[in-house]
Simulated scan of single mutants.
Amino acid sequence: MQVDPGNMKLTYTNSVFHFLKPALLVLSLFLFAFSVSAQDEAETYFAETKVGESFNFNEKTIRFKEVLVDSRCPSDVTCVRAGEAKILVEIFKGEKFLGKEIITLGANVNSFKTSLAKFFKEELDIEFLSLSPYPKTSRKIKASDYQLQFKVTETVKR
């Protein structure tokens, strides 16, 4: 490399850079094309269901079957342990029953995320946002009163 002090421009006399430029260009184009083809598309759905209700999307169904256990600490009591709720959901593709999943929600956790990819070929995450109503000592919650809010994110490979 030579420096011309008259106009302070760098001039390269080594021809290695002439070979590197095309190679770097081809490599950059390949990596860009690969990254574009490998990108995934994610679709997000929000749902609120009651016990026994189903949420349908893209020929898939998640049914809020029942609350198995609700030992969350009532909001009007101070507890040593926060407790938890266990819910049962059923998974379908079209009319075909694929299986059941028991989800444990902690009382002090705002949301719980799990993958349902074992039931489907594509990636499918479900995030349980809330289970309401929250227990109080002054009332007993009937099974029909429970509502489950969740978000489903389906990742589709292009």
Rank of each mutant, 00 (worst) to 15 (best):
A38R: 09
T49H: 04
K50V: 07
E84I: 04
V36W: 05
C79W: 14
T78I: 13
R63Q: 13
F64W: 02
L27F: 14
T44M: 09
S28E: 04
F92T: 10
I87N: 00
E101H: 11
E53Y: 12
G52Q: 08
I62C: 08
E84H: 14
E84R: 13
G94M: 01
V77M: 12
D40L: 06
K50P: 06
L68S: 11
S35Q: 08
R81N: 10
P74H: 00
E101M: 09
G52D: 03
K65Y: 08
L29Y: 06
C79P: 10
F32A: 09
E66Q: 11
A38K: 11
S35E: 12
S37M: 10
A38I: 05
N56P: 03
V51N: 04
S75G: 12
I87S: 00
V36D: 04
K100A: 10
E90I: 08
A38S: 13
G94W: 01
E59Y: 15
E43Y: 08
D76H: 02
R72I: 01
Q39M: 12
L68E: 08
F92E: 04
F30H: 03
R81M: 08
G99W: 00
S28Y: 04
V36K: 09
I102W: 03
T49Y: 02
S54F: 02
V36R: 07
K100L: 06
G99S: 04
S54L: 07
D76N: 13
F97G: 07
K65C: 00
K65W: 09
I102C: 08
L88Y: 06
Q39C: 11
A85Y: 01
A82R: 07
T44N: 13
T61V: 15
T49L: 03
E41G: 06
N56Q: 06
V80H: 13
E101N: 15
L27N: 07
V26R: 10
T49P: 06
R63S: 09
Q39G: 03
G52L: 03
S71N: 08
E43A: 08
C79D: 11
K100E: 12
E48R: 15
G83I: 07
T61L: 12
L68G: 03
V67N: 10
G94I: 02
